[in-house]
Deep mutational scan, measured.
Amino acid sequence: MFYPNSPQTSPQLTQIPYGQQYAMMQRQIQQPYHPFATTEPQARLYPYHYQGPIQQEQGGFITQQSTAASPQYVQMRVTPVDQSIMSGYPNQTANGSSSSSFNYNIHPQQQQQQQQQQQQLRHHAMPVGSVPLQDDRYRKQLIVNYLAPDVTSTDLHELFSRFGELDGARIIYDKQTNMSKGYGFVYFCHAEDAKEAVERMSGYEFHGKWLKVGYSTNPLNIVPSNSSPYVHAGSRGAAG
C-alpha cells in the first residue's frame, strides 16, 4: 500500500523548493479562506456584503464582478436614472436638479381664491374633541361614552347635575331594538360647569363602566337656548 506522503511516492527534499517541504498533501497545500485577509477597505468593513468592485458596462447597466450573493443577503441591482424623465418638472436647472418651490404660472386672482378656499376649509374642519370658538353652545354640550346598558337618562342627569344647572341629558337608544347604544349627551347651562365635568368625570366608574367624557361637536345635538329642557323620564321611549 502506498500513501500520498510515503517515501516511495514523495520526491527528495532537495528537489522541493524551500517553504513547501512540509506541504505535501493536497489539504495542506490548499490555503484556508480568510474573509478579512484583503487589501480593499470595503471588504474589511463589510465582509458579507462586499463582492468586489463595481464596473460600468456598455448599455448603462451596473453589474458586479463577483458571483451571486448568499441567500441570506439580498443584493440590489441599481440602474442609472434617465434624465429625460425629470425634464417635465418646473424650475429645473441645466444640471438636472430642481428647486423646492414650484411655479405653475397661476393667475394671481386664482391663487388668492385657492388660498381663501383653504382658509375656509381649515375654519370649518374641526378635529374630534375640539371646541370651536365662534359658538358658545359647543362648550356646553358633552358626550358621555361607555355607558352601561342599564343607565337611563334620569341617572345621567343626576350624575352630572352636581356640577351645575343642566339644560338636559339623554341616552341614545336603538330604534329597532330599543336598547341603549352605550353613549349619551349632557347639556349644561354654563360653559364653566361643562369644563369642570369634563375634567372630573373622564375615567369615572359608573355602573361598572369607566366613562369617557368630552365635548360634543355635532351641531345636530345642540340644544337651542330658547327651547324647553328635555324630559328626564326613566322610560326608554321618552328618553330616546
Rank of each mutant, 00 (worst) to 15 (best):
Y138L: 01
L220S: 03
I106L: 11
D135F: 07
I171A: 02
S70N: 09
I16Q: 13
V231S: 09
T38A: 08
K140S: 04
T152K: 05
G168A: 06
R122T: 08
V78L: 10
K195D: 02
E158C: 14
E40K: 03
V131S: 09
L159K: 01
A68G: 12
S227V: 10
F185D: 00
P132R: 12
Y215S: 00
S97H: 14
Y230G: 05
E199N: 13
Q110N: 06
M24D: 03
P149M: 04
H190L: 05
Y138S: 11
D82E: 05
M126W: 11
A197V: 04
N178Q: 12
L220T: 11
G88I: 12
R27I: 15
H107W: 14
Q21C: 06
E199T: 07
M201G: 02
Q92C: 12
Q114V: 10
Q92L: 13
N91C: 14
D155N: 15
S84Y: 15
L166V: 02
T177P: 03
D155S: 09
D167P: 04
Q75T: 08
L166C: 03
E57H: 15
Q83R: 11
H34Q: 04
S98I: 08
V128G: 10
Q109K: 11
L156P: 14
G203R: 01
G184F: 00
H232M: 10
S6L: 14
K140Q: 11
A191N: 05
T154K: 06
Q176F: 13
K140W: 00
S6F: 15
G19P: 10
N5T: 08
A148F: 01
A94P: 12
V223K: 03
L142K: 01
V144N: 03
A23W: 15
Q141L: 00
T79E: 03
Y73K: 02
Q141A: 01
S66G: 09
P4W: 15
G208P: 02
Y138C: 09
I29E: 15
G96M: 09
Y3V: 07
P53D: 08
G164S: 01
Q8F: 15
F61E: 04
Q55F: 15
P219I: 01
Y89A: 05
M86A: 08
R170T: 00
H157V: 07
A125G: 11
Q176I: 10
Q51E: 13
Y204L: 07
Q30T: 15
L211P: 00
P149L: 02
H49V: 13
Y146R: 01
P4Q: 08
L211M: 05
Q28C: 10
G203V: 00
Q42M: 03
M126C: 15
K181R: 13
G168P: 04
H123M: 06
C189G: 07
Y18E: 07
F206Y: 09
Q118D: 11
G52F: 14
Q26I: 14
A191R: 02
D150F: 12
G52C: 12
E196I: 12
T9Q: 13
R27H: 14
P32D: 03
Q30C: 12
Q118P: 11
L159N: 07
Q112M: 10
S99D: 09
P219T: 01
R139M: 10
T79Y: 15
Y138M: 02
G214Q: 09
Y48R: 05
I16D: 02
Y33K: 01
Q51D: 11
P127C: 09
T152I: 07
A233K: 03
T217N: 12
H232P: 08
G182L: 08
Y146K: 00
F160C: 02
Q115C: 05
S87L: 11
S180E: 01
P229C: 05
T152P: 10
T67D: 05
F61T: 03
Y3D: 06
G214Y: 05
N105L: 15
S161G: 07
A43N: 03
K195E: 07
T63A: 08
P7F: 15
